[in-house]
Design a protein around this nucleic acid. Structure first.
Length: 905
DNA sequence: TCCTCTCTCACATTTGAATGGC
DNA sequence: AGCCATTCAAATGTGAGAGAGG
């Protein structure tokens, strides 16, 4: 039922063009060629749907909104990511562990927000665990239907969200492409990245206002049907309370199982007796969180492993776990002090390798200035260490600030190191422009521009949505009173820490895209440490604070701006948008074995290489290197065109979008010298040391080739866009849709809406930003470039893997653009809903140039697609949200949104 | 046919919510 | 209303086995 009613603004967000090509991009047979027409279908949607309900616009995105997000159990995540997080997926659905728990701040207490979780592919590879290493073995499978988990509390007031730890533990992952439960469908042996979206809303049915996307680098994982890495298994057993039985002293441990089997064999009829010896409660790892103190520390240390301590606590309440983690992290600093004492000694019986590793690591962590490791192929106990426990929470903030005044500091390129300097692991999205971004330092990437929302049509009134939307009265007000989660008592350590989060001023959409972009300092990651593991911790060895991960945050305001504003650009204040996303160095995520061209040093390839010359980065206007840029010059040369594109994406991509041609107002960005001045991030430090599988050695290159990026980025818009353009009338008036039926009628194809539009990443240089690239954007203003103009344009290089700098920034940079910048332009995810196949679209499909297929890099651009899915099969359990504000258990499972993705079989 | 790889399933254990009795 | 014990569904990793592909 909800499918259709989803808030149009979100739903309609188009996907980036790159997405549409994604599936085709892969040369491998794994990527069936689905009609890319789907994308076009999306673009062809009536503009009317595109703009979010104008009503109450003023309520959203107040300037004072500075949204920050902290990953509560960041230390645990880091432990896993250090080894290489694996996430089990089953047909029946499997929960994630570690759980995704975040803490939000900066929300407007009076506004309602919906929190969403989605999981996007990090790259386009399939992995295999060989030789204690994750190696790329081929191209990714076709993208599966996009589904989003809606936090069961949604919608809730900002006060509600801020008063507790928000856990997405109920979200389930499945590999069943036919899943009817609405779980998030993923491919096995693929790498994914979790994202959290915060969407302002009046109610579940009526989304609007600012949208913020937060990406936590630590949460990258590879999906498996059975654990491949024993280290991960051990970590999970030690950390997950449900697996307690498998711990050394558990009843399901190997020892016990073997004993049971023995007994059964020897005495088939005899009832099993408990092995009391091994079950000594005293040995139990379940040490409840002790008050912070040495005593507790010693307890945990003496235990089989601190992980177990943590694990014993989990889920019971967020508080417990978070406190436990906080405890761990805080205590880690103290470990050195007590390391001498015998207390630290793990029990002889329980000192598994992992435990040792953890323990050692914990102790070592103190000394570690940075993540040195990313898991080398063979994970040694030390590999666990890198997790900086001292700072349990990683703060991510997204800024969508519009402030024109730029602090000088902001102008300075932020490097990953800056992150590293942060004592705590904070991720802040910097809004380049906002002076407030104290943490300015934090990695930021890029930039943004306002882009967005060109589509907003003034004509569309909120009222038009009302028919399908529950009235506010009907909505059950979010009742913080009975929150499913315990009010959060932040672990002491977390609370204060350095929350450098960027403040995103959602309200301040005013940000001039140009400014924002220019200001946005691309974060550079200096991670000199080679990352052997696909999920490398972000930090370079050089980083004093290895703990600080980089995150990408995208904030966008769903609400359309009055067209007039866009056109004229006069009212900059009304232009929302700056999507800042930090260019996250993807150091960690890079598949170790990503096939690389030896000569070219593309080894890091999907992950951007870091520019060899850091200096150049900052100085050269031309070099707007985003963190995504490849470090090795050679590599860059090889993929020069492609990477450059990506690089620019981070910095200039958004500007591009916003800019040019699409909206005159935004054009400022282009002209803004600042844009060019964006320092390239020096990612060089972390050149990934990927094992190059001989068989796959060419893979990287192949993939590049497959993408076939045109050497000259700036040159032209992709053909696809052209197609899309054809479908769209430049200045279409958006008809208001009064109800679902109308919506359907208007868009028979039932497009999937992507709330977060993708920005075409093609442009390398903002100055070069092809106006065409944005042409597809349906702007109410009619700023769209004529279709004809686009026709002959060379295909701009699509985003490459580099967008997700794996090595330095493991996290796929969520392009600011992705989120809502240009919904119409943004192509929907590669795998679109059935509607894509609508006959009417077929001609369009045919029209696609063959070359269009392999142009874009999928991940970065993956939009959150909250689609209006008319299908009856749409599985959405939102009704309870209205009916039962109290979140009774039955309803507490959370809701999954099928984003309209079509299962690829 | 054999081998490898991946996935599925049943299993035992543990957790946590629900239920009922006091 | 509060506490406690019990029940039961869900969550978890293990390991055997099936299935597909080479």
């Amino acid at each position: 039922m909800l499918g259709v009613e989803m808030y149009p603004g979100l739903a309609l967000a188009a996907q980036r063009l790159g997405d549409c090509c994604y599936r085709d991009r892969e040369p491998t047979v794994h990527m069936p060629l689905y009609p890319t027409s789907c994308d076009m279908a999306t673009r062809s949607l009536p503009h009317c749907l595109l703009p979010p309900p104008p009503a109450k616009r003023e309520n959203f995105g107040k300037s004072e909104d500075i949204i920050r997000i902290e990953l509560e159990n960041v230390s645990l995540w880091k432990q896993f990511s250090t080894v290489g997080t694996e996430m089990i997926i089953t047909k029946k659905g499997r929960r994630m562990f570690p759980q995704l728990k975040v803490k939000l701040s900066g929300l407007n207490p009076s506004l309602r927000y919906i929190l969403l979780l989605d999981i996007i592919p990090v790259d386009s590879f399939r992995y295999r665990f060989q030789d204690d290493n994750w190696q790329v073995v081929g191209g990714a499978e076709a993208r599966l239907p996009d589904r989003v988990f809606i936090h069961p509390d949604s919608p809730a007031t900002g006060e509600h969200w801020q008063n507790r730890t928000i856990s997405f533990h109920r979200a389930k992952l499945t590999n069943n492409t036919l899943d009817g439960q609405g779980y998030i469908i993923l491919h096995s042996l693929h790498k994914y990245q979790a994202r959290v979206h915060v969407v302002e809303t009046k109610d579940v049915m009526m989304w609007g206002g600012a949208q913020h996307t937060f990406t936590f680098p630590e949460t990258q994982f590879i999906t498996v049907t059975a654990y491949q890495n024993n280290k991960i298994t051990e970590l999970k057993i030690n950390s997950n309370p449900f697996a307690k039985g498998f711990r050394e002293n558990g009843m399901n441990s190997k020892k016990q199982r073997e004993a049971r089997q023995k007994r059964k064999l020897n005495h088939p009829n005899q009832e099993e007796t408990l092995d009391i010896e091994s079950c000594d409660p005293c040995d139990s790892t379940e040490v409840l969180p002790q008050p912070m103190g040495l005593e507790s520390t010693t307890l945990s240390l003496s235990d089989s492993g601190f992980c177990s301590d943590m694990s014993s606590l989990p889920e019971q309440s967020v508080q417990q776990q978070s406190s436990a983690e906080a405890f761990l992290s805080s205590q880690m600093t103290e470990l050195s002090q007590i390391s001498d004492s015998g207390q630290n000694q793990p029990q002889s019986t329980t000192n598994t390798e992992v435990d040792n590793g953890l323990l050692d690591g914990s102790t070592q962590l103190i000394g570690l200035s940075s993540y040195t490791t990313f898991a080398t192929p063979s994970i040694t106990p030390s590999s666990h260490l890198p997790v900086p426990l001292s700072q349990p929470t990683s703060l991510y903030s997204s800024l969508s600030s519009t402030q024109t005044d730029l602090p000088a500091s902001n102008s300075e390129p932020t490097t990953v190191q800056n992150y590293s300097l942060l004592s705590s692991s904070h991720y802040t999205t910097i809004n380049s422009t906002s002076p407030n971004t104290s943490s300015s330092t934090s990695s930021q990437d890029s930039t943004q521009n306002s882009m967005c929302h060109s589509t907003s049509s003034p004509q569309l009134s909120a009222s038009s949505y009302q028919p399908i939307l529950p009235s506010q009265e009907n909505l059950s007000p979010h009742t913080p009173m009975n929150p499913p989660y315990h009010s959060l008592s932040q672990p002491s350590c977390q609370s204060n820490n350095s929350a450098h989060g960027l403040s995103v001023n959602t309200a301040q959409s005013q940000v001039i895209s140009g400014i924002a972009s220019s200001n946005s300092t691309p974060s550079t990651v200096q991670d000199s440490t080679p990352t052997a593991f696909p999920f490398p911790p972000v930090q370079s060895s050089n980083n004093p604070d290895s703990t600080t991960p980089t995150s990408q945050i995208i904030s966008q305001t769903a609400f359309p701006f009055p067209p007039a504003a866009h056109q004229t650009g006069q009212d900059s204040s009304k232009i929302q948008t700056s999507f800042l996303f930090t260019s996250v160095p993807e150091s960690t995520s890079t598949p170790l074995n990503t096939p690389s061209d030896e000569d070219s040093n593309t080894t890091s390839f999907p992950f951007p290489l870091q520019p060899s010359n850091t200096n150049s980065l900052t100085s050269g206007p031309v070099q707007t290197l985003s963190p995504y840029t490849f470090q090795s010059s050679a590599a860059s040369q090889i993929n020069h065109s492609s990477y450059q594109n990506t690089t620019n994406l981070a910095t200039g991509s958004f500007t591009q979008m916003s800019s040019n041609s699409v909206n005159g107002a935004r054009s400022q960005v282009l002209t803004n010298p600042m844009v060019n001045s964006i320092p390239a991030s020096s990612l060089s430090a972390s050149q990934p040391t990927h094992v190059v599988p001989g068989s796959n050695s060419n893979t990287t290159q192949t993939s590049h080739i497959s993408y076939s990026f045109p050497p000259s980025i700036p040159s032209g818009p992709p053909p696809l866009q052209n197609v899309a353009m054809s479908t769209l009338a430049p200045s279409q008036v958006v008809p208001a849709l009064s109800n679902i039926a109308q919506v359907q009628q208007n868009m028979p194809q039932s497009f999937s809406t992507s709330t977060f539009a993708h920005i075409p990443t093609q442009c390398t240089n903002t100055s070069h930003v092809p106006s065409q690239s944005f042409a597809s954007m349906p702007t109410s203003t009619g700023s769209l470039i004529p279709h004809s103009a686009l026709q002959n344009q060379p295909i701009p290089p699509g985003p490459t893997h580099t967008q997700y700098p794996s090595t330095t920034a493991a996290y796929p940079p969520v392009a600011p653009s992705e989120i809502g910048s240009f919904p119409q332009l943004n192509a929907t995810a590669p795998y679109l809903p059935d509607m894509v196949l609508h006959p009417s679209l077929l001609p369009l499909l045919d029209a696609l140039p063959p070359s269009a297929t392999a142009l874009y890099n999928p991940f970065p651009s993956y939009p959150l697609r909250l689609c209006q899915d008319p299908r009856s099969s749409f599985h959405l359990q939102l009704r309870h949200i209205y009916r039962q504000p109290q979140h009774v258990h039955a309803n507490s499972q959370g809701s999954f949104l099928d984003l309209g993705g079509r299962p690829a079989f």
